[in-house]
Every structure is written in structure tokens, then in C-alpha cells.
Design a protein around this nucleic acid. Structure first.
Lengths: 124, 124
DNA sequence: CCACTATGTTGAAGTTCATCTAATCAGCGA
DNA sequence: TCGCTGATTAGATGAACTTCAACATAGTGG
């Protein structure tokens, strides 16, 4: 895969955009978008929710969360919405239950933002 | 490499610890540590500061920041402290000026946390 | 149609955060 | 030693965030 292809696959309009910050600095718009995603991950409960969803290997039911956390149902619901609005997960209601799944492109984009290319790492 | 070895090589006491969240979920302590780092990156100004420091290719003087941002000097200083406390940058005073540099291990750790192994990506 | 379960939404209370001004600290040169 | 410049700390204030209780909505089954 060429660098160009990598850039394109990462760069589908929303947020996907930029080289790792070790390579080039972000402009204001890029920083705003990135910060919004990091904010979604900046709460311990949300990060755990995200990790449970991401590691589920597919979909997972909301009913599997309640009980694993010390907070009330509405609070879980609120945190899930934040993750959804950040584009990190998506969900669908099927019958009584609601299922969530991760959006790997988005996760990968954020991960790539922080990645340290070997050259940059060696420069120190 | 055994799982144990992986855990050890990633786990130098503070924070380094865990497999990507696409592979296994975080426990409370891991989530707390990860969330703290994400919180440090969750502000647009801090994320831009971080990207400027990371892409500087070495050290950079605080005096290079002031003027690039619409906030007062003390505010910049406050944000730099948050990044420092998160372990993402470090600094040293030399004469009149203070220089900052990134800590690539920490950046790499956070990046790895969100990385999506191919297998996990293909499973969807 | 009604009761029941599973989630999501709203509004309010308490807490944390970003930002500013004013004051302080560190180094330099006269 | 005194002032000057660069940077950080302290205190205050308004905005944003987390959380819960109460209510609303969607779907199931009697």
C-alpha cells in the first residue's frame, strides 16, 4: 500500500486528515477534531466501555454493561452517547435490546495520530 | 514471545501495561491511567501544543508558542503543565528560556492502546 | 390494551476545568 | 544590587462535565 493510499484511506472527509503529530503539527481544525475524540476517551468509565465494545469481537448488548459498573443505567447511557457522537461506536436496536459495535477506522485514525514513526523515535 | 513477555516489555511500571483495547478490555486501573492521558490531549490548545512539540524534531522553546495562540501566557503554561503531568512531555530551564520535548514512549503507548490489529479489523 | 422490561432523555446538583489578572520566581546585564 | 524579560504559580470566576432521580419511549407478552 502506497503512502498516498494510506493517506486516502485515513482521510475520508471527517477527521481523517493528517500525518502523525510526530511528523507535522496540527492546524486548529484538526486539533479541534482530534481533541473531541480524545475527550470522549478521557473518562475512565467511557474508556472501559470502549474497550469492552472494541474487544467484544463483534456486537455487544447494552444489557452486558449494566452490573459491571458502579453507576446507574442512565449514566451508562449518557457515556455511550458520547462515544457515539465521537464516531467511535455505533448502535442499533433489535427488539428489546440495543447492540453496540466499534468503528475501527475511527480508532485507527486516532491511533495513527499519536504513532511515533521510527525515524522520529530515533531522532532522540 | 509469550504473553507474559509482552506484558512485561510494555509494562514499565507506570501505565505501560496492556494489549490494544481491540484485543482485550481494560480493568479499572488501566482505564484510569489511560483516561488521564486522553484527558491531557482532550483540549484543542493542548493537542496543538503537543503536536508542535512532537513535530519539532527535538526541543522547542516556550517562547515559540506565545503568539501562536489566542490565550494568555499563564494559560499556555497551565496547559504545558497538564501535558507534563500526563507524562507526554518533559522540560528543562536553560538560562532565560525553558525548553520542552516529547516523550515518544508515552505517545507510542497510547497509540498502541487504540491500534486495531488487522485480525480485529477484518472480523467486521 | 395493559403491565413489564430495557434504554434513552431531561433537569438539577455538585464538581472539575479553562481562563484571566496579579503576584512571584529565575536568570541576565548594567 | 536593581531593574528587565521570560515563565510559572495563586486565586477567582464562569462554563462544561458527571451523575442521579424522574420521566419518556420502544418492544414483548399476557
Amino acid at each position: 500500500m502506497s503512502n498516498q493510499e494510506i493517506a486516502e484511506s485515513a482521510g475520508q472527509r471527517s477527521g481523517g486528515c493528517c500525518a502523525p503529530i510526530s511528523v507535522s503539527a496540527l492546524d486548529e481544525a484538526q486539533a479541534a477534531e482530534g481533541a473531541a475524540v480524545f475527550k470522549a476517551l478521557s473518562d475512565p468509565i467511557r474508556l472501559r466501555l470502549m474497550s469492552i465494545i472494541a474487544s467484544a469481537g463483534g456486537e455487544i448488548c447494552v444489557c452486558d454493561f449494566t452490573g459491571q459498573f458502579d453507576v446507574s443505567g442512565p449514566t451508562i447511557s449518557h457515556h455511550l452517547r458520547v462515544l457515539r457522537q465521537a464516531g467511535l461506536v455505533d448502535c442499533e436496536r433489535r427488539g428489546t435490546w440495543v447492540y453496540y459495535w466499534p468503528k475501527p477506522e475511527r480508532m485507527q485514525w486516532v491511533s495513527a495520530l499519536l504513532a511515533v514513526p521510527e525515524a522520529a523515535a530515533l531522532a532522540r
